[in-house]
């Protein structure tokens, strides 16, 4: 039973984008992944709101539980709005060997984020309260010769240390101001 455009909480433009995306991917393997990726990318805050998940479930005639399962299982999908800037620290082995954990700790401190996760795990994606920055980790960028690697807004930086990282953040701050 498809939601009518009046029943969904989404704007018409968004609904239409989702419809088109679904059509483009229908029948292809990996369709759901592709659809959710495109829809997330389309949103200015790069995330999947609950209404979006509901709409997709409905249009694809799939249980919401399945959509939710996929959205929560894969690290790429954000269920919270992302910050204006995303800083992604690589936690791959080569980067770890060359000190990426310290970079992560340093950034947490600098951005005023909690120092440690409860279970001691480093995999994370958190956004600052003011919505300016999202800090996340990636298992490995595959750039091991440039360790340690940090991605700032889709630009890859190699051989990072605390100073160069600090400079990049200041740069972003400056840009905003």
């Amino acid at each position: 039973m498809a939601l009518t455009s009046s029943q969904s909480a989404l704007a018409l433009e968004e609904q239409s984008f989702i419809d088109r995306t679904i059509t483009a991917y229908t029948g292809k393997p990996g369709a759901l992944l592709g659809i959710l990726e495109r829809v997330q990318e389309h949103h200015p805050h790069k995330y999947l709101a609950p209404e979006v998940l509901e709409y997709v479930a409905d249009q694809m005639d799939l249980p919401l539980a399945q959509i939710f399962s996929v959205a929560t299982f894969y690290a790429l999908f954000n269920l919270e709005p992302q910050g204006d800037h995303t800083v992604c620290i690589c936690r791959g082995t080569a980067c770890h060997t060359r000190g990426s954990r310290n970079l992560l700790q340093r950034l947490r401190l600098e951005l005023g984020l909690p120092e440690e996760s409860e279970d001691g795990a480093d995999k994370l994606c958190i956004t600052t309260a003011d919505g300016k920055y999202s800090l996340r980790t990636v298992a490995c960028f595959g750039q091991c010769a440039l360790a340690p690697v940090v991605e700032v807004d889709h630009a890859i930086f190699g051989h990072m240390n605390e100073q160069t990282l600090h400079r990049e953040i200041e740069h972003l701050d400056g840009r905003k101001a």
Partner: peptide, 27 residues
């Protein structure tokens, strides 16, 4: 056809990869 993953290491395991292609969590 090209399909992009979504950041799950376990999808390197073949049955998880298949599940992922089928539109499920990669278990």
């Amino acid at each position: 056809q090209l399909v992009e993953g979504a950041g799950a290491f376990v999808c390197g395991e073949e049955t998880a990869l298949i599940a992922s292609l089928e539109g499920f969590a990669g278990r």
